[in-house]
Write a protein that binds this DNA or RNA. Sequence first.
DNA 1: TGTCTTAGTGTATTAAATACACTAAATGCT
DNA 2: AGCATTTAGTGTATTTAATACACTAAGACA
Lengths: 249, 249
Amino acid sequence: MSQENINSKLNFHVSVDCVVFGFEFGKLNVLLLERKMNYEGQEFKDLKLPGDLVRKDEDLDTAAARVLKELTGLDNIYLRQYAAIGTPNRLTRQERDMEWLRQIGHPEEVVVTVAYYSLINIDQERINKFELRDDAKWKPVSQISELAFDHMEILNDALTALRDELRFNPIGFELLPSKFTLSQLQKLYEVILGSTLDKRNFRKKVSNMPYVIPINEKEKGVSHKPARYYIFSKKVYEKTRKSSLDFFV
Amino acid sequence: MSQENINSKLNFHVSVDCVVFGFEFGKLNVLLLERKMNYEGQEFKDLKLPGDLVRKDEDLDTAAARVLKELTGLDNIYLRQYAAIGTPNRLTRQERDMEWLRQIGHPEEVVVTVAYYSLINIDQERINKFELRDDAKWKPVSQISELAFDHMEILNDALTALRDELRFNPIGFELLPSKFTLSQLQKLYEVILGSTLDKRNFRKKVSNMPYVIPINEKEKGVSHKPARYYIFSKKVYEKTRKSSLDFFV
DNA sequence: TGTCTTAGTGTATTAAATACACTAAATGCT
DNA sequence: AGCATTTAGTGTATTTAATACACTAAGACA
């Protein structure tokens, strides 16, 4: 391959985009950034996913973790790469997307992006470190119908990947505080999977999971029977998980 | 962000790498390319995954399909993106990898690669179109222990992704000819999942899959009781699949 | 005709999934 | 003090799926 040929293929940006999920008050939320711009003489506002260009000296996972740290102040949050997208016109399908790239001084170049979703819960240990960027907002997933660029597709794919993983891996706990009630856990599954579950069967299943451990602590100040708290033990999970297959045994 | 800053991030190559699986004579094989070079005065040979730089005007999936077409002459083969890898030194960890890049005139640049695995079977309809590149060879997966660059890791991740998908989706059929016997199907699962299965239970399970359909045709010329052929119907599968969950209902 | 080889079949047991309704414990109101 | 309201928490019977296991059938070939 000639040198010229190679250089004509060189001009890629590579970015990471992060779909940050949170779960609160029985709703699945996602962290989005406000995008403001002058467009056709008017102020135009919409929402986009947090993301950034990858630096030449960093790993993709490192870049995603850096974006999250800059966004939330938090380290060590659950991150999963689920797709890479390189559709040539993915940033320039809408006139206002092109205008925004011009206004922020970003060249209209092909950007291959690597998509991650992350799961965060703001529990007591971390709440003091948690500091959201000013332009970041939690939005209920159910109320988002449009985003900048191809970010709506990226979000939808993140949801699909999240559901797939939630079915087979104990990642739901990442979205709950370290102490949680079984009703919270059940609600989380119901909301993300989009179906209702039978309370007694759900609890029967949980009681067969040695890594979901009841602790001697109850809810306080609720005007009904207080629920017991449980914790998830990753250690016990690693030890006791059995490989199970669905399609064939 | 300053223009300078952006340009310093611009110099990415983006490539696709393809892990092409095939199944024959009860073995899982993968298509690899021979890499030949002068190294320390000697001829040095090893193996690498097929792949190529992505062109600026093509989609990632398109690039992967193009690589496969150039490699095998075949269109329309099962392709699945399963990872993106961007470790900064991924191509330059070994001196001989750097030497090879020099010898083919490829600059030592950071190459973010998007990994695909594909499943192919060479059945009667396609065999006339099938023409392997001269430097391509089928190798049994079980006999591969070392590859160029980070390709061994990429292959191992492909295997993990393949196993994960095989458990829950009817992709095994992609590795078999359109007409296959149940023993072939069982062997395929056994080889890929690395476990043995009970013949009667396996067949019981298959008989509950309306999309695995017996046809009125038997093996010929085998020196034992000839097996019946079956076909997989994607159409019936789409109609009858039920969503099942493993971790929670 | 017999031997070799792989195909093909059924049943009993155990484990898991499902469907379903009442009592318990706290708060707050009168 | 007692009652209403709200969510937590529990068990059993039924259906369905998973497992364990051994013999007969059909063709090739000597």
